[in-house]
């Protein structure tokens, strides 16, 4: 299938801690970030008050801010970060493409076009409609990119997929732009979302996409063993008796649920899916049963930190978090392209 594979399966020599211990450490870090994220904002809210808003909610202004504004936003960051990271890991494992990421391969732009088109055609639609639109857009683009990429010389190589993704992104975003041009109102409604942002998200939205992302995440975690085998190459996996067609289909569905769901709530946030799996693989052997949960925790931490940075850096102005992740992630992509892709 793919020729220019980069990440060779690592031996387990880098593993010092037991994997479960590392995961626990990760969760602790995540909790610390979560508390910091919730305490951050225009109003100073002390830590005890934050805690009492959970244990003894009294309806006070501060409690309301924590429960309805800050907590949902932070949870959203965790949800979106972990699902993007997991979808990136799935894509990298399945296509053996070190550069795979839902943003780079155009899946996010497809979801974004679907959302913009829905708003343009039907006015401000309910979130459930937009979520379904984003999922459909993501699925359509994923299929198209894979189809286009595998038609190129040498099959679905990293280069073919990346170039197909880039070209399709160009096409899709020109359609998005066309819609925004025709309708200034759509533009007004959506431009912050389009840059990728977690601002102004409430619990409703969270609950709306949770089922999709949840199913995707469970499927992803369950696929760990199969993806590990697939990352040795499709032919090898077949030789080991794996039903590769099914694994591919289920993985693709999981990717679409995870990535599409994320875009529906937060707009296109790039590079989380690229960066996190690579960072995780620095510490872990190529065993996706561990890589996937690590990615979930790592992605959550990364996006939470990026969101904190987006809120703090230009206070009181707030940056769309998608810009933050692109600024960190794109140089990393360049580094990967330089070091990992065989010429």
């Amino acid at each position: 299938m793919t020729k220019a594979i980069a990440s060779p399966p690592r031996g387990s020599n880098q593993l010092q801690l037991s994997p479960s211990l590392g995961l626990i450490v990760g969760v602790v870090i995540l909790l610390i970030c979560l508390v910091y994220s919730v305490s951050l904002g225009a109003a100073e809210i002390p830590l005890p008050q934050i805690l009492t808003s959970f244990t003894a909610f009294d309806g006070s202004y501060n409690h309301l801010i924590v429960q309805t504004v800050r907590l949902p936003r932070s949870l959203m960051a965790i949800l979106v970060g972990s699902s993007l990271a997991m979808s990136g890991a799935l894509m990298q494992g399945l296509t053996r493409n070190p550069l795979a990421d839902p943003g780079i391969l155009g899946i996010e732009s497809g979801a974004a076009l679907a959302v913009v088109a829905t708003i343009f055609l039907f006015g401000s639609s309910s979130l459930s409609v937009l979520t379904v639109a984003a999922l459909l857009g993501a699925a359509g683009t994923a299929i198209l990119v894979y189809f286009l990429g595998s038609l190129g010389r040498g099959g679905a190589t990293p280069l073919n997929l990346t170039v197909a993704g880039a070209a399709l992104t160009a096409l899709i975003s020109s359609f998005t732009t066309a819609i925004l041009l025709v309708s200034q109102q759509t533009l007004e409604e959506i431009r912050f979302w389009l840059a990728g942002s977690l601002a102004g998200r409430d619990t409703d939205i969270l609950l709306q996409v949770l089922p999709f992302i949840g199913v995707g995440a469970i499927a992803a975690l369950a696929l760990g063993k199969q993806i590990t085998t697939m990352s040795l190459g499709e032919d090898v996996a077949k030789g080991l008796g794996q039903q590769t067609a099914w694994v591919k289909i289920i993985t693709a569905i999981a990717v679409v649920l995870l990535a599409g769901g994320s875009v529906a709530v937060a707009g296109p946030i790039g590079f989380i899916g690229l960066v996190v799996p690579h960072m995780v693989r620095f510490y872990l052997p190529t065993d996706y049963r561990w890589i996937l949960p690590y990615c979930a925790v790592g992605g959550a931490i990364l996006l939470l930190v990026a969101d904190i940075a987006a809120r703090v850096l230009l206070k009181p102005q707030e940056l769309p978090v998608g810009i933050m992740t692109a600024l960190v992630g794109a140089p990393f992509f360049v580094y990967l392209a330089k070091s990992k892709v065989k010429k």
Partner: peptide, 16 residues
């Protein structure tokens, strides 16, 4: 090949 991949990465930065 590298040229194109690097171009994609740098485009993303400029795009951001």
């Amino acid at each position: 090949i590298l040229l194109i991949l690097i171009g994609v990465g740098l485009s993303a930065i400029a795009g951001a």
